[in-house]
Computed example of a mutant assay.
Amino acid sequence: MTLAALILTLVTAQRLGELILSRYNTARLLAQGAIEVAPGHYPLIVATHAAWLIALWIWGHDQDVNLLALSVFILLQACRFWVLATLGARWTTRIIVLPDASLVTSGPYRYLAHPNYAIVAAEIAVLPLALHLYLLALVFTVLNGLVLAIRIHTEARALAIARERQP
């Protein structure tokens, strides 16, 4: 197995594990009375990320690895885990609003309104760069940017409503 294939195996396993965690957290939040906001765009997000991974496997599984870009990607994983740890049971890949719950303002949320999206945007660019797939980095950065524009606008509306409801 090449180093590139090992990296892609680990990233794929991580993403699948996160989907399982997200489904679990979503079910728990919904059972507590949370509501999902604008689920219609979610398949577009899943399709974009799945296409990114598939493209990386097709064109990157046997590529040499740029260790500097890989180091940046590994640093991004530490940031990703910081987000997950900060949100805990409230982390999900969907937009879920738990009525009367205070907004998270600790951890990376002290510095950015959407740290997870910034991290994901960087990952989508950096991992293809680590595999010398510059066109893939560009194409999926643009696609992800378009999807995130929809997502962030929708989430910002949901968070504004949640803030209005806070005591």
Rank of each mutant, 00 (worst) to 15 (best):
A162Q: 15
H49F: 08
A121Q: 15
A158R: 03
T2M: 05
V11M: 13
I152E: 02
H132F: 14
I7E: 03
L29I: 03
P128L: 05
T26W: 02
P108W: 06
A121R: 13
I119K: 01
L84A: 00
T93G: 15
L133E: 00
F73Q: 06
L16T: 04
V147H: 00
E123T: 02
T105H: 08
A4P: 05
G60Q: 00
T2K: 05
G88W: 07
L135A: 14
I45L: 10
L138A: 14
S102K: 14
F140H: 06
F81M: 04
Q77E: 09
A85K: 12
S102Q: 15
V46F: 15
M1P: 07
E123F: 04
R151Y: 01
T105D: 07
L56G: 07
L129E: 00
H153A: 12
I58Y: 05
S102V: 12
E18I: 00
A149N: 06
A149V: 00
H132L: 06
G107A: 03
A130E: 09
T2E: 04
T141S: 12
L76P: 03
A118V: 14
V97Q: 06
G40I: 13
I45P: 00
L8D: 00
H61D: 02
S102F: 11
L10H: 13
P39S: 04
T2I: 02
E36R: 08
T48S: 10
S106D: 15
W57T: 07
A27T: 11
L103S: 13
A78F: 15
H49P: 02
I96M: 13
E164P: 02
N144L: 10
W91D: 08
